[in-house]
Write a protein that binds this DNA or RNA. Structure first.
Lengths: 233, 233
DNA sequence: CTGTAATTCAATCAATCGATTGATTTATAG
DNA sequence: CTATAAATCAATCGATTGATTGAATTACAG
């Protein structure tokens, strides 16, 4: 039976996710991974077969189900009402940035591994597209379609790109953004402020009425206020 | 005298820029670089000292002056007239995407090296910030200030982030975007179409009047038509 | 031409890489 | 307990890494 605790296996996955995402495949040795996991070098071959197979398993782990509740908000079901859809968009933006707070978070690992695959695609490329990008892109298009009902598919794709670009820019270039603007992205308030800017910019970019945008943001701020208040109690 | 042709040195720089940007520092060996340059391994030590020093020299080369006329449009001087400033913004967007056409282009190298430094900063981080990011960010803020005169500095920084995010998203995630949307980013027409989408989205995001945006894009299309016509002759 | 500095070359260095072995320890079933 | 399988371990494999040597070659001034 292979029904043991699997401590070593999961520890190797965890340490490899952290190291691979931070420094890339080639820069991380299997001894370093094993040490960080408190395991023996040979355990990598035993549990995964090879360094490459460990990397593929790590990517699959990060891009898997865990992620839809972590790095990206699920947008498969979105209300038809534009007002509610706008709230959903704002929450999506907040959600996408909020998980940046702890350094070395799951979001950071996910984003970093994605970028590294975009820079130099490996065998993991397809699995990222299938399991993460397509579902999220479809969800975002579904959401944007509620806000811009007369937009066709190519235009919705462009709009989704503009939204994702603003998010990923902050996720990826965090060190540059912090240096360039003198902001602290580990500060929840500054992070939320940035999310609300993207919300306003995006709702305007979609071509929505100013009154609609004003009310949406106003409503979102109240929701955040409630959320903060609830967490304080 | 050190006033020789310097063929080997520049060949090493060129090959290392390509290889480092495509596959990262750790994944590229000095033998591979020397072979691609048609040089001996020891020539790296002779001309640069070490592999790391070669990398630093390569980054400095890419981020240098060459770049302001290549990867990024110079925005240090922008007309005050909003109409002209809008044209400048559209040309900036076009310029930022147009150089993506040839695979392995200078823009691709510049973007890739930037991202790798954002993912895992090295000694080259500061030089990128000083020589490339700060000047470009200042230029973009200068330009956006003409279009949104009442915006304060932090807001302009946020707006610049939204613009840069949309550009970098396409630059970085090119393989993902092509797969996800079924587009071909080596096609100049599709690339310009994408630039014009970002232009419209951005001008709307800035909160400008629809008539102003319509005229700006209309005018830009005519400019592009003239440009194409001139190149055909 | 000769002499000197600049440059390139093949060969080799110790260190580290991923992978693998066989022995050992641990867990589980009968 | 014993027996069998699962898991971990220290030790080592050949290959490759970046770095370095000293000889050979080239370029150029006098």
């Amino acid at each position: 039976m292979s029904e043991t605790s699997g401590q070593t296996r999961s520890a190797l996955l965890k340490s490899s996710i952290t190291l691979f995402s931070q420094r890339g495949y080639a820069d991380v040795g299997i001894r370093e991974i094993a040490d960080a996991a408190g395991a023996n070098i040979a355990s990598i071959k035993y549990h995964f077969g090879s360094k490459k197979d460990l990397y593929l398993a790590a990517v699959a782990e990060v891009m898997g189900r865990n992620n839809s509740e972590n790095a990206w908000k699920d947008l498969s079901e979105v209300p038809d009402d534009p007002r509610l859809a706008a709230q959903e968009l704002i929450q999506f933006l907040r959600h996408s940035l909020k998980h940046l707070i702890p350094p070395g978070s799951s979001v950071e690992s996910c984003s970093s591994l994605m970028i590294r695959e975009a820079l130099h695609p490996s065998e993991a490329f397809d699995s990222i597209v299938e399991n993460l990008l397509i579902p999220n892109n479809e969800g975002l298009i579904n959401l944007l379609g509620k806000l811009v009902p007369d937009a066709d598919r190519p235009h919705l794709n462009n709009l989704a790109g503009s939204v994702m670009g603003q998010i990923m820019h902050i996720r990826i270039f965090r060190p540059f953004v912090e240096r360039l603007r003198g902001v602290d992205l580990s500060n929840p308030d500054q992070l939320d402020q940035m999310a609300m800017h993207i919300a306003q910019f995006t709702l305007r970019g979609l071509g929505l009425k100013e009154i609609f945008i004003f009310e949406a943001i106003q409503s979102a701020r109240e929701t955040e206020a409630q959320f903060v208040q609830e967490n304080k109690s």
